[in-house]
Simulated assay, not measured.
Amino acid sequence: MRFLPVLFFSFLLVFTSSCKKSKNESVSSFDTLVWSDEFDNSGAIDSTKWFHQTQLPAGGDWYGGLINHYTNRLENTFVKDGFLNLVAKKEVFNDQGEIKNYTSARLNSKFAFTYGKVEVRVKLPTGIGTWPAIWMLNKNIDEPGAYWEKQGYGTTYWPVCGEIDILEHWGGKQNRIQSAVHTGSSAGDDVVNVGGRIIENVSNEFHIYELEWDENKMIFSVDGIEHYTYKPEIKNADTWPFTSDQYLLLNIAIEPDIDPSFEESAMVVDYIRVYQ
């Protein structure tokens, strides 16, 4: 009987060690910072890291019937006090032969990568009809006016190229955030690879939105709490076109149901970091 406390203590040590190992094994292996923007400058965004995508698609409107122009002006994109301000505004703006009543910005990163972890600390805009997003596209997308298409990489049409939506938010569903994966088998209004949840105060407080992407799966989370995992059992060109470089996009789209009283609102970004 006198050996029981010793045996119990030994068992406890083994059990504790096993638990620690299991916990450590679940920690992301992406721990080396390979690219970031801390927005420590002032004024215009860093043009070595970002490209303003402003060219309208054929037909004069952005996909999905959006009613805004994207511009490269300081009024719509500027850095101040350590934060990126991406601003949607109600204003009459004439560009590329098209007059629209709203402006915003759409940024493409000049950095692209395969597999890693993305962290974005951000506050979101408000207003019914606003549609802010932080997302990714394969740099092979054939989209006139996109940065990587201009570099000669555009070979593949959407959604076959693959799209990763780290964060989407619709002003008509305030505080509900969503993540989605668009592929040849699940895209647009028929996307089924989607998940989300309610996050309090997404427009009044900063939250950290995160994607972990490896060769098998994608995990989406907010403030360290997972809300969606994409891990198709069968991986082929229709379900998993995610084996090559993707780049980051930030934008605020304006939908036709925009609140008539909307004047201006901003996506405020503290930092964007990519780890591998």
Rank of each mutant, 00 (worst) to 15 (best):
I164C: 00
T114D: 13
I141K: 04
G127P: 13
P125I: 12
N140H: 14
D165K: 00
L124Q: 15
Y115V: 12
Y147H: 05
L124V: 14
G154Y: 04
L124I: 14
K123H: 01
I141M: 14
M136H: 08
G152L: 02
K117T: 10
W131G: 09
G116M: 07
G116K: 08
M136T: 07
V120Q: 08
E163N: 04
N140D: 15
G154L: 05
I164L: 06
Y157Q: 11
I134N: 10
K117R: 15
V122T: 09
G152Y: 01
W135F: 07
L124M: 15
T155V: 14
Y147N: 04
P125M: 10
V118A: 15
T130I: 12
K110W: 11
G154H: 04
E119M: 11
E149C: 06
W158C: 03
I128L: 09
L124E: 14
I164E: 00
Y157D: 11
Y157N: 13
G154T: 08
V120R: 09
A146K: 06
G145A: 09
K150I: 08
L137E: 05
K139G: 00
K110G: 08
G145L: 11
G129S: 14
I164P: 00
A146C: 07
T155S: 15
E149N: 14
P144V: 01
P159A: 07
F113T: 13
D165V: 03
V160T: 06
R121C: 14
E149G: 11
G162E: 01
Y157R: 12
Y153G: 00
K123S: 02
P132W: 06
T130Y: 07
G116Y: 05
G116C: 06
L137V: 05
G145T: 09
T130A: 08
T130P: 09
W158P: 04
L124K: 14
A146G: 12
P159I: 01
W148Q: 00
I134H: 10
E143F: 15
P159N: 04
A146P: 03
A133W: 07
K123G: 02
Y147M: 03
T126Q: 12
D142R: 13
V122E: 02
K139N: 09
